[in-house]
């Protein structure tokens, strides 16, 4: 029976030789089959965390288990479960796409499987480029080659470190679709990103890291409900100078020089707007338009990171 936890990180610490604390007592659990987005500003420790789990960076302290295997004492089983797409486009420029993907599969001790590699290249729309030297490919194609290399040994867990960096919008959306398709096949996906939109679009759970500390981990929907705000905006026919006394007690504010009344509520609360509408009418205020807006993950992220 498969272990439900894909990755377990306990008290992970990384202090570089110059004294810089890149990871400060990180505790994290990634569930099997989920898409986990790790958000954080530059230098927050996202890549160090990934590289430590993958065995590229030596931790100063703490433990990591991957699919139940310790990544130091049982590194073979632990690493075999992981596919890594690094942030940088580091490829063998003079190798063909086919050869470099075959090489990656071999490194992980998997027997040759032309049919699997063919299928992977086709899924990533790289089949037509299979004999092309990597140096001749576009940035987006190179990024796909990196993903193909990471998938070459059929990993259970895929790390995507800034997968959309330098990728145009169209390709980014196609990549998102491919990542979702991978998740549907049971692959656990951990991605770091600067694009909050990416996390909002794809992630099941979100972790926010800043200055080496994991500030929070939360289910994305729960996070947005807990920390997000929903606002109903009443666009007025006539400007007003202040909220009338008759509306006291309601969570209302004025915006745009008195042309809009904003009704703010927690996203978790089941607010009844009918009372507000009735009292607006009683106060002689007649909105000409009504619309709503919700906090984005980005606003929540900025609020959290800015507060630390």
């Amino acid at each position: 029976m498969p272990i439900e936890t894909a990755i377990e990180i306990r008290a992970l610490k990384k202090i570089y030789q110059n004294g810089f604390i890149a990871l400060d007592d990180i505790n994290l659990e990634i569930k099997r089959g989920e898409i986990f987005a790790l958000l954080g500003p530059n230098g927050a420790g996202k890549t160090t965390l990934i590289n430590t789990v993958c065995g590229i960076v030596q931790p100063t302290g703490g433990h990591v288990t991957v699919s139940g295997f310790d990544n130091v004492t049982q590194y073979r089983q632990a690493r075999a479960a992981i596919g890594l797409v690094p942030q940088e486009l580091t490829t063998d420029a003079f190798e063909s796409v086919w050869n470099t993907v075959t090489f990656s599969r071999g490194l992980f001790g998997k027997p040759r499987s032309p049919s699997y590699i063919t299928d992977t290249l086709k899924r990533l729309t790289l089949w037509d480029k299979r004999d092309e030297e990597i140096r001749n490919l576009s940035g987006g194609m190179k990024r796909r080659v990196m993903i193909a290399k990471a998938l070459s040994h059929e990993p259970e867990i895929l790390f995507l470190d800034e997968p959309s960096a330098g990728v145009d919008v169209e390709l980014r959306k196609s990549m998102w679709a491919q990542v979702r398709a991978l998740r549907d096949t049971g692959v656990t996906i951990i991605l770091t990103t600067h694009y909050i939109e990416e996390a909002q679009e794809m992630a099941d759970r979100v972790g926010i890291i800043n200055k080496g500390k994991l500030i929070l981990t939360e289910d994305k929907q729960t996070l947005m409900q807990k920390m997000g705000k929903r606002q109903i905006i009443f666009v007025l026919r006539d400007h007003i100078n202040s909220i009338p006394q008759t509306l006291a007690g309601l969570p209302l504010t004025l915006e745009d020089e008195g042309s809009k009344i904003i009704f703010t509520c927690d996203a978790t609360l089941d607010n009844d707007i009918s009372e507000t509408l009735d009292r607006l009418k009683e106060s002689g205020i007649r909105p000409k338009d009504i619309y709503s807006r919700e906090s984005s993950l980005e606003e929540i992220f900025v609020g959290l990171v800015g507060a630390v």
Binding site: Q77, P86, L107
Partner: peptide, 10 residues
């Protein structure tokens, strides 16, 4: 930078 692949392989 491709050394990452060797270091992260089993």
């Amino acid at each position: 930078g491709t050394i990452y692949e060797i270091l992260s392989a089993p």
